[in-house]
């Protein structure tokens, strides 16, 4: 039985004074217990340390020089004592049933190693014009969708021994890289089709600063792995004339 297992909730934060309380409060509002909350302050220069201090012993705090989200998450994994690990970014919010619903899935499927949920984006006032425009366009970004990001993840701690931790050389997209590596190793995964994470769009989102080069860096890592393993993946694109040559008797 999985019920009653400790979940380590890891929150990396960098200059998160504006929203970090809301994020932490959504962890403490979880219907699931027991939990431990680990906050890794990635070298904040704003009022984040003072806000974290208010939580006293309810959170475990660790402060490091600014090394980026992947390194902060990895530090949290090192500190984690739980059999399960979950992540929340300092500007996002969990639904109060998030951990409980995911732990139900682990209880019902003992083979499960990774459970992610759907997420929904929400907009702060300074990005309201973007929200309005995307709604008018009926853009999929405005709708609930599977969240292949860290904030939705609940994973067995042991899966990080198998897949490894987050790639600290990737500036943005370390979560995508991790999910890709987990997929390549056949990690047992389930996508719970319920919105249990709310991702905030505001003026300073790190992911909205993602560039094409960031996206390419994740793909480049994938090709490095492919070359190292000599695995043959991908679908060869052929033209109709080539197909005809391949199958002369059709």
């Amino acid at each position: 039985m999985n019920s009653g297992e400790l979940i380590s909730c890891i929150v990396p934060v960098y200059n998160g004074e504006r929203f970090v309380s809301e994020a932490l409060d959504s962890i403490f509002a979880q219907t699931y217990r027991p939990i431990e909350v680990i906050v890794v302050d990635d070298g904040s220069t704003d009022g984040t340390p003072e806000i974290l201090a208010r939580y006293g012993e309810r959170i475990q705090r660790f402060r490091q020089d600014n090394l980026g989200p992947a390194a902060a998450r990895n530090r949290g994994i090192e500190m984690a004592r739980g059999k399960y690990v979950a992540f929340l970014d300092a500007d996002d919010v969990w639904h109060k049933n998030k951990l409980e619903r995911q732990m139900q899935r682990f209880t019902e499927n003992p083979e499960l190693e990774v459970c992610i949920t759907y997420k929904e984006n929400f907009w702060e006032s300074e990005r309201r014009s973007e929200e309005t425009r995307l709604k008018q366009q009926d853009h999929p970004f405005i709708k609930e969708h599977p969240g292949f990001v860290c904030q939705t993840l609940l994973a067995c701690r042991s899966v990080f021994d198998r897949v490894g931790t987050f790639n600290e050389s990737i500036r943005i997209g370390e979560d995508t890289d991790w999910y890709a590596r987990a997929g390549e190793l056949g990690v047992t995964k389930e996508v719970l089709p319920e919105v249990l994470v709310y991702r905030r769009m505001h003026s300073n989102n790190l992911t909205l600063k993602a560039t094409k080069e960031d996206r390419l860096s994740v793909v480049v890592e994938k090709f490095k792995r492919l070359r190292a393993s000599s695995r043959d993946e991908g679908e060869m694109i052929t033209t109709s004339s080539e197909k005809a040559t391949d199958k002369p008797f059709n």
Binding site: P140, T176, A180, T207, T211, K212, G234, E235, M236, I237
Partner: peptide, 20 residues
Amino acid sequence: LKKFDDMADMFALDPPLPGL
């Protein structure tokens, strides 16, 4: 030319997205 779709779900709604 080879096509890969294994990360399409992960990339699909994650910035950078054209027009976002």
